[in-house]
Amino acid sequence: MKKINFNTRSLFALPYVIYMFIFVVVPLFMLFGFAFFGENGFSLDEATAFFTDCSQWATIGRSLRIALTAALSCILIGFPLAYIIAKIRSKTVQYMILMALVAPMWINGLLRTIALKELSTMINFEAGETLLTLGLIIDYLPFMLMPIYLVITGIPKSYLEVSADLGASPMVTFFKVVLPLSMSGIISGFLMVFTPAVSTYYMSEYLGNQSTFMIGEQLNIMFTKDNKSGAAVIALVLLALVGLSVFIANCVSRIGNNKKQGGLA
C-alpha cells in the first residue's frame, strides 16, 4: 500500500482547498442534482422540456449572438487600447489610465447600467440590442483590457528590436510578433467578457427590449419563481456554453502555439 505523503508546506493551501471544495465543487454537483433528480428520483423531465422547446434554441442563439458581438467588439476596442496604454512611456501614466478605466467598478454594476439607461433615454437612444451591446462593452471592457495589457507589457522589448533588426517594419512587427504573442491575453480576455455577457440578465432587462430576451433572464425568472430544477437545467446549459467556449479557446491557443498546452489565462 502506498501511503499518502502529506507534504507539510502544501498544507498552507488547505484553507483554500477546503473553501473551494465547499463553495465551488460541491455546488456544481448540486446543480446536477437539482437538474436531474426531482421528488421522484431521477428524471429528465425538466431537461426534456427545455430542449424540446424550439424557442429556447432561438433564445440561446440570440444570447450567443449578442455576447459574441460584445466580446469581439471588446477585442477590437480593448486591444488597441491596451497597446496604446502599454506604449506610453511613463509607467505612472499607464497605471493612472488603467486605474481610471477600472475604477468605475467601485460604483455598483447595476447602478452604472441604470445610469446608462437614463443617459440613453435622455438622448433619445432607443433601448434594444444596440444599447444592450454597448452596455455590455462598456461594462466588461476592463476584463478585456487587463489581460491584454499584462501580456503586451510582458513581451520583452528585445523581441521587437530583433524584429526591427531583421528588417521588419513596425507594421510587420506588430502582426508577426506583438499580435501572436498577445493571443493568450486576447483569449482569456475574450472568455472573461463572453461569459458574463452571454449570461447577463439585469443588463438585458434594463438596456434591451422585447427582442433581446436572453438565457440569463430566463434563469432568473425560473429562480425568482422558485423553480429550482428548471433553473438548474438552464444553469447547466450556460455551464456547457461556457465550457464549450473554453474548449474552443484552448484548441485555438494550442494550434496557435503548435504545442500541447492545457489551461487558459
Partner: peptide, 28 residues
Amino acid sequence: RTRAVTMAVNQLPVINADIVTSFSLVLL
C-alpha cells in the same frame, strides 16, 4: 497533478457565469 487540479478548480468561478455561480451557491 494536485496542482493542475487545484488550478483548474480555481478557473471555474473565474470563467463560470456569475448567475450560475450565484444560483449554485443558493442551492448549497
